[in-house]
Design a protein around this nucleic acid. Structure first.
Length: 670
DNA sequence: AGGCCTCGAGTTCA
DNA sequence: CTCGAGGCCT
């Protein structure tokens, strides 16, 4: 290290130290004049050694431009995502329709395909060919100034080949190999590891100290031209996305070598399928394929929705995976006393949300993966929602780890907290189901949507009521008065009345909902409906033997036994006797022969617009149809709403006809 | 014994 | 909303 460099570093540290003392701690150790002298020397050295001023403009520990809000001159959109070939076909059809409606020809419609790099969007501004500002995307309208760190990106030219004014957009990325090395180093240094290359790139750009950013070796791929001032130059404005890329390249900006222009969907699908297999062979991480309509005139015809441009879309590669660290393994006790181990993860961003926990299912699952506290694990979101632990990265296992031993006792279980393995199952369950926590959870369930559906009374409210001693069991809910609630913290007069009236509303309850609310083993929505419909009243169910119940189509010996057992226990009988006087139980009415959908089975996925899912289910049942929760060959129709889950794809696979909301209403004659 | 299908449990949004 | 496990039917 040269003397100058060393001096520079020492100066930086010293200046930073005094800044903090002065600005943040209000306890300066040296005079203002002395500080100014140090700062002046630092600025001079920075220019001499690095060619630009970085931390020299700092006030209170930050460069005064750093992270300053920047209002983008051109709004920064992001494309919608698609995941399947079917969605691709739909998108293409819509593009063609809209172009035709705009009186343009689709004969020359072409798409440009680019890698969707897993990085961080950067908006770059040049004036007269000189780099003046770099900003993050932020919320699309306002970002943050990161010029001081972006300047350290070696492929970002500080001067263009022509003295133009322009604003362009690119992706800042960290090579996968560098990302992994960086994380290993950080793991050894006991620093938080980055979840993915995108976070690492973002973290590097958001450094105060450009030297740190420089050490990260960031790269840039520019892919879009937002604004170009061609006066005073010989340039002609581009008329297509491809020409934009060529122009950006000619100006000295780094563009991608992996751009494809095509007119066919087959080519797009082939490129996508290839990318699934080759994504790991590129230096950058790829999370999809960006498709853009090539012609700018077509793009203008297509325009924007409130959320995103219509002329492009991101065709996402399957299931994002990432790594994180298991910081602990905790045990959850469910309403039924089943004990589930859960991995407490270092929070990590995956598929658009932060994940901090993931189920480890049971003892066998933990053994099979050999997950230990301290391990780095690979996780993914199954169906883009539920985080799932896939594997342990053994090479990153710390020196001292212990294999996980399932405990013998669990806090939250009744009695001494003992648990036992359920016969013939991988799961453990509390030996004693009589504990404060379990009663609490059964009470949450009692009030929940599927059971009594007491509006606005969720776990939080129930906790307050229990803790204040206002209720001991579900029975006590029905004698609450607003006066009792109002003294509680967080309860205004109105809220107190709302809660009491919600409870009153819920006291008029359909039989099957009451059955669900009782937390009988093996009794969920469907079984409860079967019971209600076959026996007609609670008294009839109470009187039935386990054989009587098992005789019901859809209920077998195990669940039949569990139901009869529940009603035979004196504690449960006492509970019912106390509860029933407060309720008006609605026995099921025999469906009068409306047989429009006679016996046909429906499965719902996605969200509906005109109806709620529950309303749709109700309509189906009232028309004599059945609602099931998973798609099989026996399913007659799958009703597909917005943002459908995997069931839509499953329907396609099994050849089950799908309905959208409109065709569904038609079918029902509405 | 094979397949269908319900239950139960996980989680993260607005 | 989704999946795995296990109950239930054929």
């Amino acid at each position: 290290m040269t003397d100058k460099l060393q001096r520079l570093q020492q100066l930086r540290q010293t200046v930073q130290h005094h800044r903090i003392k002065y600005h943040d701690e209000d306890a300066p150790e040296i005079s203002d004049e002395a500080f100014d002298a140090l700062l002046a020397e630092l600025v001079a050295l920075e220019v001499a050694v690095e060619g630009f001023r970085s931390t020299s403009d700092v006030v209170g520990g930050r460069p005064d431009n750093a992270f300053v809000k920047v209002t983008h001159q051109v709004r920064q959109w992001s494309f919608d995502n698609i995941f399947t070939h079917a969605e691709l076909v739909d998108w293409d059809a819509r593009v063609r329709r809209l172009i035709t409606e705009a009186d343009q020809s689709t004969d020359d419609l072409a798409y440009v395909l680019e890698h969707k790099i897993d990085g961080l969007k950067l908006i770059i501004e040049y004036q007269a060919g000189q780099l003046v500002r770099c900003a993050t995307r932020g919320n699309g309208q306002v970002g943050e100034d990161v010029t001081h760190t972006a300047r350290t990106i070696s492929s970002l030219p500080s001067e263009l080949t022509q003295p133009v004014d322009l604003i362009c957009v690119g992706e800042v990325w960290l090579a996968t190999a560098d990302f992994e090395k960086l994380n290993q180093k950080r793991a050894i240094a006991n620093e938080a590891i980055f979840a993915n290359p995108r976070n690492a790139a973002a973290g590097s750009l958001r450094q105060l100290d450009p030297a740190v950013a420089a050490s990260r070796n960031l790269s840039l791929t520019v892919y879009d031209l937002d604004l170009l001032e061609v006066r005073k130059t010989k340039l002609t404005p581009p008329t297509s996305q491809l020409e934009e890329l060529q122009l950006l390249q000619a100006l000295g900006l780094p563009t991608s070598n992996h751009v494809v222009r095509t007119q066919t969907l087959d080519d797009i699908q082939t490129t996508y399928d290839d990318l699934i297999h080759t994504r790991d062979s590129f230096a950058w991480a790829i999370d999809g394929l960006v498709l853009k309509v090539d012609s700018l005139s077509h793009q203008r015809a297509l325009g924007y929705t409130a959320k995103s441009p219509r002329f492009g879309v991101a065709y996402k590669l399957p299931a994002e995976q990432t790594t994180t660290v298991v910081e602990g393994i905790s045990l959850q006790v469910g309403r039924t006393g089943v004990v589930t181990p859960v991995a407490e993860l270092r929070p990590v961003l995956i598929a658009g949300s932060t994940v901090a926990r993931a189920t480890l299912h049971n003892e066998d699952f933990i053994k099979q993966l050999d997950v230990r506290v301290g391990d780095t694990v690979i996780i993914q979101k199954a169906g883009d929602i539920i985080p799932e632990v896939l594997a342990v990265v053994l090479s990153l296992r710390p020196d001292i780890t212990k294999n996980y031993k399932f405990p013998k006792t669990v806090a939250g279980c009744g009695g001494n907290g003992a648990i036992e393995r359920i016969l013939g199952s991988a799961a453990y369950r509390c030996v004693s189901l009589d504990s404060e926590q379990l009663r609490r959870q059964r009470l949450y369930y009692f009030a929940s949507k599927g059971a009594l559906n007491i509006d606005g009374v969720g776990p939080r409210i129930i906790d307050q009521l229990l803790d204040a001693g206002l209720i001991a069991s579900a029975v006590d809910l029905f004698t609450l008065t607003p006066d009792q609630l109002e003294p509680l913290e967080s309860f205004q007069t109105k809220a107190a009345h709302n809660v009491v009236s919600a409870i009153r509303d819920a006291s008029s309850v359909e039989l099957h909902r009451l059955l669900i609310a009782l937390s009988i083993d093996g009794v969920g929505e469907e079984t409860a409906r079967l019971l209600a419909d076959s026996f007609g009243s609670l008294e009839a169910i109470e009187a039935a033997s386990s054989a009587d119940i098992a005789a019901v189509y859809g209920i077998g010996a195990t669940v039949g036994g569990s139901i009869a057992d529940w009603f035979s226990q004196s504690a449960n009988q006492a509970f019912l006797a106390a509860l029933l006087p407060h309720l008006t139980v609605g026995n099921p009415t025999k469906h009068t022969s409306v047989t429009k959908l006679d016996g046909e089975t429906f499965v719902l996925t996605g969200s509906l617009t005109a109806l709620t899912r529950d309303e749709a289910k109700d309509l189906i049942r009232r028309a004599g149809g059945k609602v099931s929760s998973s798609v099989s060959k026996k399913t007659n129709y799958v009703l597909v709403g917005n943002d459908p889950g995997s069931k839509a794809a499953q329907a396609e696979e099994l050849g089950v006809p799908t309905l959208n909301e409109a065709t569904f209403m038609e079918l029902l004659g509405l």
